[in-house]
Every structure is written in C-alpha cells, then in structure tokens.
Design a protein around this nucleic acid. Sequence first.
DNA 1: CTAATATATGAGCAGATATTCATATGAAGG
DNA 2: CCTTCATATGAATATCTGCTCATATATTAG
Lengths: 114, 114
Amino acid sequence: MANRKHDHENSLSAVRGEMPPEEDLCNLGDLFKVFGDTTRVKILCSLSESELCVCAIAELLGMTQSAISHQLKVLKDARLVGNRREGKTVVYFLSDDHVRTIIAQGLEHITEKR
Amino acid sequence: MANRKHDHENSLSAVRGEMPPEEDLCNLGDLFKVFGDTTRVKILCSLSESELCVCAIAELLGMTQSAISHQLKVLKDARLVGNRREGKTVVYFLSDDHVRTIIAQGLEHITEKR
DNA sequence: CTAATATATGAGCAGATATTCATATGAAGG
DNA sequence: CCTTCATATGAATATCTGCTCATATATTAG
C-alpha cells in the first residue's frame, strides 16, 4: 500500500463511485449561481405568479429597466425564462415548472428554520 | 388614476400580493449563492454519500486543504453542514436532508434537458 | 516539553459580477 | 419619415469571491 500520512482510500473509492460526473457538477453549480442573486430570485418569483413585460418587472422591483434587462438575459441564457414580443413590449415567462419547484424547495428550507 | 406611459397596476398589485416577503427573497438568494459554486457543490455531493474529514475531501477533489477549509466554513455558516472533532481530524457531514433534496432537484433539472 | 499531523484563518490578489450610463434597435402612431 | 415608447446591449466601475500563501491553533505521540 501507500505510505501516506493518513489514508482515506477505503472511504474515498466508495464516494468516488457515487459522485455524478464532473460536467454535471459544474453545470449544477452554474445553475444555482443563476438562482444565487436576489434580483434574479425576485424576477423568478414574479414570473412564477404571472408573465410580465420588462418594464412591469422593473416597476415591481423598483429597479431600472436596464438592470432588469441584463438579468433577464442571464435568466434566458440559462433557459430559466422565455419571452415573446407583443407589439412594443416583450413578455417574459418561466420556461419550466422545474424553476417553480426549485424556488419552492429553497423557500421551504429557509422558512423551516425559523 | 395615474398618467403613466404604460400602466401595469392591474397585473402588478396581484403579483405583489403573492410575493414572499423581501427578507425571505434575500435569504433565498443567499442560500442559492452557497450552492452556486462548483467546489461547494462537489463537497456537498461528497458529504451526501458519506461523512468525511477535511483532508479526505481535499484529496477527493484534488484541491488544497486550505481551499477546502475555507469553503467548509462558508457551508457551515450557511448551516448546510455540521462537523465534529474526532481526535486530530474534524469530520464534516450534511446538517440536513433538505440539502440532499435541493441538490437532487437541481441535478434532475440538469440531466432532464439532455 | 517537542515534533508531527490536521485544521482554521487572515491577508492579498486575480477574476467574476451587478449595476449604471449612454446608446442602439424595434415597433406603433401620426 | 419622424417621434415616442419599450427593450437590448456595450463599456466602465465598484464590489464581491475563491484561491494561494503564510501562519496560528489543536490534538496526539514520544
């Protein structure tokens, strides 16, 4: 065997076998990163109730249209929201019920420890 | 009524009523922020399989002990992991089954779109 | 006590990120 | 066309974040 200071091979090989592939873990981190911002969480929560155009979200959150547009782009790149043009405005909506579930799960975790 | 360029009060008041309180949304963002890092996701996945000491995690992930310790502190401050000393080593473990659920939910979302 | 191992932690830095500001694009009305 | 409203986007900036390096603390052995 090896002469390490402290051998973990027994436990590690078992854990290693059960770990999801590296790529999935990176994607998972990236996914949560998108959820990991108050502004984006607020946007997602809003859209969870109703589809909304950009300026409605901006008004709702009391933020500039530009800031919201930038974050909507992040959310869209992550495929968490979709959009469609309606005349002059662009309406955004959740692209997936999974998003609602993840938010709900997180909220449950938060509110449970209180 | 108001004379805005574009009135959203009808939709907005309804959405406003359903939004969780500001503080919860901030905490939610902070929670997901902790999940939003590949290293921490890997640590959580490892601990999801078995409790592990610091140097085992470091070895498993191929990272320095210091880097892992710093991230374990973040995870502990967020109450996602707990620890106990066992002689010279300190063993870390998931503090909550909720963590497992959130990770699983995220992984499901990832692997579904493939 | 001293040495060795395991972990924690502070300072510093390089890279990432959220907002602002200015400006571009796009749609509808006159 | 030209103007106005709605949205998108690039650049600049200030802040935050994750790692490294050096060092401190803690436990056990001798």
